[in-house]
Write a protein that binds this DNA or RNA. Structure first.
Length: 329
DNA sequence: ACGCTACT
DNA sequence: AGTAGCGTC
């Protein structure tokens, strides 16, 4: 679900071509979850190999990544580390939604309600350690760099934008704005034509709403995040107005005569004083064609032709060509 | 979601 | 060049 900030966030439509030459830090968890939920058949069955292993995420990563590279975009994936203790309630809630959706999915299939079946199947998607490992293995074989964050992947990705190692964070969730990403990209896809690609500038959001980044975090604390519940009846607009009027979350709570289960300062710290890896290195390598075919075609039943044509698109990031670009721009 | 083919 | 429809695993 993510942060409910839609009402106070504005975006600009951009074209995929405008990202040529740019490095994009992709929120791996967010991306993989999208693939798991939507790369499915009509009745909700995900893509699977002959042994019954889910392969939707591998398909998504292979084709989207190669397609982005072909368009001159340099992707880096950022994986989540250990979840914060305060995220437990959110995680429990999501697990319950998944479990209920799984029951509804099977029921819908039995009753022949195909559209419902797919809808519930999408909600039942879960990310297993196997799926994470397979995704990392594929990225290695493709020569695409990935970073393992200490905690939230979005926090690490935002830091990388701040440091100039990435131009923007690509995610569907607004959380990265709280983590300080100056630019975030919504709806990234292999083909830009289908859904509009949205560019969101943090500074613009802050100016538009008359808030500092610290105050934006305070708005989030009132509205609710993955780490706290928020105040009932306070949405993005009401939250913004409260913080603008009273200055910070503590004064706003006092005015509302409301109390929170958790000290707001703890939530602030998650977004403003988070841990990140500083000594990462980003390098795009030549894909290991042979091993990639072994992994995707031999082990997971992908069509070898499709794998080869996807891998061929990665040639744009060959070390030889990269050094040429350094000379000629 | 994405690739591929066919069609305008 | 842009898109609709079907298959992908």
């Amino acid at each position: 679900m993510g942060l409910k900030f839609r009402d106070i966030v504005s975006s600009h439509e951009i074209k995929l071509d405008e990202l040529k030459g740019k490095t994009v830090a992709l929120d791996a968890a967010n991306t993989i979850y999208q693939f798991l939920s939507s790369i499915r058949q009509m009745d909700g069955t995900p893509l699977m190999d002959s042994q019954g292993n889910v392969t939707s995420h591998l398909s998504g990563i292979l084709y989207r990544t190669s397609s982005l590279v072909e368009k001159g975009i340099k992707p880096i994936y950022v994986f989540d580390g250990k979840a914060h203790v305060l995220k437990k309630d959110t995680q429990d809630g999501r697990r319950q939604i998944r479990e209920e959706a799984e029951v509804q999915w099977k029921k819908a299939v039995d009753e022949g309600r195909i559209e419902d079946a797919r809808k519930f199947a999408m909600r039942s998607s879960r990310m297993t350690p196997d799926i994470i490992e397979g995704s990392k293995k594929l990225l290695d074989l493709m020569g695409i760099p990935y970073i393992q964050a200490i905690s939230e992947g979005e926090a690490q990705a935002s830091y990388m934008v701040e440091r100039g190692d990435a131009w923007c964070v690509a995610s569907q969730d607004y959380d990265c704005l709280l983590f300080g990403a100056s630019r975030m990209l919504k709806n990234i896809a292999a083909r830009g034509s289908k859904s509009r690609l949205e560019m969101i500038n943090l500074n613009e959001i802050l100016e538009m709403n008359g808030l500092t980044r610290e105050q934006l975090v305070d708005v989030a604390v009132l509205v609710g995040t993955d780490f706290n519940e928020g105040i009932k009846g306070v949405g993005a607009k009401k939250g913004r107005n409260l913080i603008k009027k009273h200055g910070d979350v503590f004064k706003a709570l006092k005015h509302l005569k409301a109390e929170m289960d958790i000290d707001p300062q703890e939530i602030r710290d998650i977004f403003l004083n988070h841990d990140f890896i500083e000594d990462y290195d980003i390098k795009w390598n030549k894909p290991d064609k042979e091993e990639a075919i072994k992994f995707l075609s031999d082990e997971h039943d992908f069509s070898a032709d499709r794998v080869v044509s996807a891998l061929d698109k990665l040639k744009k990031l060959n070390p030889a060509q990269k050094s040429l670009e350094q000379w000629f721009g």
